[in-house]
Design a protein around this nucleic acid. Structure first.
Lengths: 258, 258
DNA sequence: TAGTGGTCTAGACCACTTA
DNA sequence: AAGTGGTCTAGACCACTAA
């Protein structure tokens, strides 16, 4: 571990100089993911500063999401998950025709090993947001499918799909295993040929529950993508609400200038 | 201002209790947007704590993005910015034909008062990322236009555009004021009719510089949207790298099922 | 000039983890 | 028991803002 020194004559405060120093070690990979940073005591000793100064440097790195602290253990460089590029053609029919659900088809391209767990299928009344998107009345039952996606064993995304009961009831959509091609293949089997999707993208800090589900450290934001699928009659046939660990994704969209 | 009291026998640390107290005042609207919080000195006095304890309470609220501090003035409840929905048709030609740049055209729809500042126009060699996107050699000069967008006076987005020198030099693209319809109108004037755009969306915590420019609290994430514009020959004619305060935006995309 | 937040020092006690 | 981070105290000097 080669720590630098601080310049007491500089305008930049010592705590920021220490943060810069440590950030440099991380960004140049001299400190790699999962590795432990020098303890507060070592930083005090090496740089000749008070404890609060060392802590402030670490606080800055935490707020940037570069490191995570574990009480009683130490401060560690955040383990990064493989970045996944999601192109807007990932729901193209050619993938479904190959019997692949979108997440799995997309994962193969990136070379990561995908998996799914925590699958739950229930039927329930929709909340207001889903009602509006699906344009169904509040007393109409919808099928709720939730699951968690992992990439190389690391949780990266949770997803909850809502499908109107009249489309999904009595089909494989209401079962755990939807069969080849996933939900969208089954919706098309039911006579609702898909025409287009809309996606709404927002980003924010995770709730505590989301932090648990995606095993996020403090200061790791999430992206929320809410997709609505429409059939050729213009009817909304599915709403899919996904929460993605932001550092793990790049979303790609292509649209005409018109 | 009715501040509560802290319970020294509680497990919850005093700093968190103070934060809870202040948070309650904000969420119940007894402290409204833009209003000043009690100073550190007043908090010390009222709760009977040391300065660092009061500061830590304020730090927590800052990290939640609820308040912003202004050196020498005070700590204030964060002014919330109106949420802006950005549809992917916001670059449609019909808006340019009306003489409106995208940001301004879109702002009008949402009822907010838009403005632009910090406009800088320079010429420079592109960095690697821009080179690859524009597919220009590293020794080719590009025009670099940076600016900051505000909504009702609150900074919400910074943008840097890169235009190949052979397209922009000697045109209004290289001047501060690009004229009606903005950059895209001038690019089309130069014979490069726009055909489509791609956008790459990522989200992360802001750098220190970005925090300053967008006046973000310490734990407010940003969305980065990098758009590339292509003309009918398939040539990349502009790359626009934008940093948006995440809480202020909803991005909307529409794409076919194909 | 007074009041504000920004940074720093030098201690202290506590809670958690690991051995 | 030793080492780690979490929290707190009681001061200090500085930089910025507004009257």
């Amino acid at each position: 571990m080669q720590l630098g020194t601080i310049d007491r004559t500089s305008d930049r405060p010592p705590s920021k100089q220490i943060a810069d120093d440590l950030r440099g070690l991380i960004q140049s990979s001299r400190l790699v993911a999962g590795e432990q940073l020098p303890s507060e005591a070592k930083l005090m000793d090496h740089y000749g500063v008070a404890r609060m100064t060392a802590r402030q440097a670490l606080q800055e790195l935490k707020s940037e999401g570069l490191v995570v602290s574990e009480h009683g253990r130490g401060v560690f460089v955040r383990r990064t998950v493989p970045v996944r590029r999601l192109a807007s053609d990932r729901f193209a029919r050619r993938y479904r025709d190959q019997g692949k659900a979108a997440f799995l088809a997309e994962a193969e391209k990136s070379g990561a090993t995908p998996s799914v767990d925590s699958i739950q299928v229930t039927e329930d009344y929709p909340d207001v947001e889903v009602q509006q998107r699906l344009r169904v009345p509040e007393d109409e039952i919808v099928i709720v499918r939730s699951r968690r996606y992992l990439s190389d064993g690391i949780p990266v995304e949770t997803a909850v799909s809502y499908i109107p009961g009249d489309i999904g009831k009595g089909t494989k959509i209401a079962e755990m295993d939807t069969g080849p091609g996933g939900i969208y293949a089954r919706i098309e089997d039911a006579g609702h040929t898909l025409e287009h999707f809309t996606e709404e993208v927002t980003a924010r800090m995770p709730t505590e529950r989301e932090r648990d589900q995606l095993q996020l450290g403090t200061s790791v934001p999430i992206m929320r993508v809410v997709r609505t699928a429409y059939d050729f009659q213009g009817r909304a046939v599915e709403v899919c609400d996904t929460i993605k660990a932001a550092p793990a994704f790049v979303l790609e969209y292509d649209f005409p200038a018109r």
